[in-house]
Amino acid sequence: MVVLSSTGSLDQLSLLRSVPPKPACFSGVPVVDLARPDAAVPLVKACQDLGIFRLTNHGIPTELMQRLEAEAAEFFSLSLVEKQTLGPPNPFGYGNKMIGANGDIGWLEYLLFAVDTSKPTCSFSSTFKEYLAAMRKLASKVLELMAEGLQIEPRDAISKLVMDEDSEGIFRFNYYPPCPLLQGFNYRLTGFGEHTDPQVISILRSNNSSGLQISLKDGSWVPALPDQESFFVNVGDSLQVLTNGRFRSVRHRVVANGMETRLSMIYFFGPALGEKIAPLPQLMREGEHSLYKEFTWEEYKKAAYRLRLGDNRLGLFEK
């Protein structure tokens, strides 16, 4: 375990010698084309098999995505003092290297927002608001397709949990800067350690730069390669519970090669704090028992954020 600190010393951050080999059985992250009338079928299969899919023909202009990326990159190019001043107030805002309060670290800087913040304080606020509105519409459509594919009613059985005015959304910019000390070496840095997302779903875009990796059922790691136009949609822990384990909360991580800049934008869709999380009754077959104890989103957040990134959070609530 080593880390490259801002002073150039080696300390606690993992260095990975090479990209993990791709298993012969893995052909890439499944693609869900929203323009297809049968999009619900591959969507459900991807959520069951991997817990992640690539979303295409989603209707969000590439120009909007690139505009927000450019404004975020401009923010991260500022001095440390400026970034700390211009970010939103704690517990959200600007940070670097430290991920949470339990000792997890990564080679990154980040900017974290509560989505219900009425007046984002960063210089890209107008673009930011436009992007958030587009993301909410997209998430609602995706979650309704999930309900369709699972053959449950009403159509908003899942989407209403994260579209309520009290629902909790989090938006995160992650910036992985170059590392001069790695120039000429075949190493990769741990950018964001392995974890699952606690929320229902998360929608991610990166600036066409590699680094995202997902864990298969056998524990092997494979790359999830980006492109200019699509999004990745991740199943979160809450959705795994809502489907009683039918959908898989995907374990993932980010490795930074130290040579190139990587910027990702992630919207995490969570329920209201008091919302009870339990398998949807519409999904439960006769005689089927819940795999999980019922809990509220607030209870799960408190439990999850006391743990390290890589810990099995759902294990606390399994029966």
Rank of each mutant, 00 (worst) to 15 (best):
D104P: 00
Y305R: 02
A24P: 02
I152M: 01
K319V: 10
L225W: 13
S5F: 05
I214K: 11
F128I: 12
I158S: 06
S77E: 15
R246L: 14
T243A: 07
P30D: 10
V241Q: 07
S125L: 13
I277A: 07
D116E: 14
S5I: 01
S27C: 06
L55D: 06
Y176G: 04
L64C: 04
V41F: 01
E71R: 13
L212Y: 04
I152N: 03
E286W: 05
S79E: 13
D104T: 01
R54I: 06
G193D: 14
Q84A: 04
G258F: 09
K119R: 14
L263R: 12
P88Q: 11
F185D: 13
E275M: 11
D237Y: 12
G236N: 14
S14R: 12
I214S: 08
T121V: 09
L13K: 01
I152E: 06
D197N: 05
I158P: 00
K293S: 05
P180D: 01
F75G: 07
S238M: 15
G28C: 10
K160P: 00
R262C: 11
L13H: 08
C122G: 09
F53H: 03
K276D: 03
F53G: 00
S215W: 11
F317N: 00
S6F: 07
E260G: 05
P223D: 15
P198S: 14
L86R: 07
K319I: 12
V233W: 10
V162A: 04
G287V: 00
M259D: 11
E144I: 01
L4I: 15
N174S: 02
D116Y: 13
I170P: 00
A303T: 04
D227R: 11
M163E: 05
E148M: 06
E194Q: 11
L189C: 12
P178Y: 03
D116S: 15
R248H: 13
L4G: 08
F92W: 11
N174L: 09
Q199F: 10
S14L: 15
E229W: 07
Y176I: 08
V3Q: 09
K302W: 08
G315I: 08
L78C: 05
E288I: 02
A70V: 07
A101P: 01
F192R: 10
E69T: 04
I152P: 00
